[in-house]
Design a protein around this nucleic acid. Structure first.
Lengths: 254, 254
DNA sequence: CGGAAACTTGAGAGCCATCAACCAGTGTGG
DNA sequence: CCACACTGGTTGATGGCTCTCAAGTTTCCG
């Protein structure tokens, strides 16, 4: 039996440890914006101007709504810890899961153009956020070319993301792609790429991938019995990244 | 037999008539950026600065590639006339149609973050474009808050677009939604909302909606026989917008 | 006019959703 | 401490929507 020590998203963020120190901007690297500025080597006063915009909010307990479709938009947020699910409900009450946002990722970018949130968001586990007033951020971006570029990049990136799972592909291809994408996103934030916790329910995964929960369950079982993954509850380990990648190839492409 | 006078996207753009006059910036309204500035009431010198960035290119004949996946990105483009199809090919050669871009719409926004085009684009009919150097545009945006906002809005809008057809829904819901979306987009540019030409093939529509061409054909036939639409080849007329909207409700929602 | 491409129509198969039942973990209250 | 309800997950059987395959028809264009 494999030991179940705390791992991945269950544990503390590896980079967030010093982010509450207040004065030392160099360590709030879970926040994509600070990070952007750091990597561009800006003057300390600009960093300060940016950092003063950052408002740490939360924690949100599991299930707590973060914003609702139709809410007035005036700030974007970067996830510091936990997982945020975005979704929309049609008038029959059917949920459509748009995506999951991991630590270091930004939510609310799709709300800019209409000044209202086009979707709702809820915390899947204990979530803390960095809130950034968008008007103030825009103002600052006009003064800081690197920040403007970073915002453009973030927005641009999100366009491509939704296209990934847009195609028609088999259920197994989509699930393989989903796991590999999660892995890559965790890896990008300093978590283990081969072992992590699925912070979302099977039902949410299924909905997001346009599958029935039963189908997800069956495919997970199959992946597991074929030695592609090892999974206990929501603790998943990727054993054969090669074959997973081969499966997901038509979706991930590169 | 209904007469087949030239309509919609087949004819000249209703707003583009004077856009080649050079000095009078007030009439290049097919270009989303000029339009944005006009609506914000900018100083003439700013308009001039913007207009000097606009490079009219084309025409591209039907089938001509506009850019290819992997190409270096340095400019976005607004469609002046015609329809542009964006798509990606997996290594088996299977095409995945990401979207269609009508006059007034912008292409290339998804290329910003990686400085390479993540998809390919091809002209479906005779296409002319406004090319806008993105570095120069960014520079100008820092000086013109309204332009920066407009860019943010355009990018943000594109994020939402891809989410529309992301859900799982029946083939007839998706096709109804597709027709209504086209209608709204044509209407927004001054074309008839109830009658227009499908500038893309059934195969492309099918691919975009994750359906087989045969399925699209059958549903079009059904819509037609039920009096929802009247269609001759690619010339389509929406007859019962109400019922179409009712069908597409779970997708369009509002 | 001829050939290719696009579109349509029909028949059969397959993937996945649906329905239903069961199981496991968790929290609640008697 | 245990019965109970409840949520989330799993497993099995069945059916339907849509794809696939195949052939025929129309349109387009050299």
């Amino acid at each position: 039996m494999r030991p179940l020590e705390p791992i991945g998203p269950g544990g503390p963020s590896p980079n967030a440890a010093s982010s509450d120190d207040g004065d030392d901007y160099t360590f709030c690297t879970t926040c994509a914006f600070s990070h952007a500025c750091l990597s561009e080597g800006y003057a300390k006063q600009d960093l300060a101007a940016l950092h003063v915009l950052v408002e740490h909010i939360g924690p949100f307990p599991p299930g707590r709504p973060i914003f609702k479709k139709g809410d007035a938009f005036n700030a974007i947020a970067a996830v510091r810890a936990g997982t945020v699910k975005t979704f929309i409900l049609d008038d029959a009450g059917n949920e459509q899961v748009l995506g999951f946002h991991l630590p270091g990722e930004v939510i609310g970018l799709d709300a800019i153009h209409s000044s209202r949130f086009p979707c709702s968001a809820v915390a899947l586990d204990t979530v803390t956020l960095c809130r950034l007033s968008f008007p103030k951020l825009s103002l600052l971006a006009a003064r800081m070319p690197g920040l403007q570029q970073q915002l453009f990049r973030l927005l641009s990136q999100d366009i491509g993301k939704s296209n990934l799972l847009a195609g028609d592909s088999s259920s197994e291809q989509r699930l393989a792609a989903f796991l590999l994408l999660l892995s890559a996103r965790y890896a990008a934030r300093g978590f283990s790429p081969s072992r992590f916790l699925l912070t979302m329910s099977r039902t949410d995964i299924a909905n997001h991938l346009r599958l029935a929960p039963e189908t997800v369950s069956r495919i997970i079982r199959r992946f597991s019995s074929e030695g592609l993954i090892d999974i206990r509850q929501r603790d998943v380990q990727l054993l054969d990244r090669e074959r997973l990648a081969a499966m997901a190839r038509p979706i991930l492409r590169d």
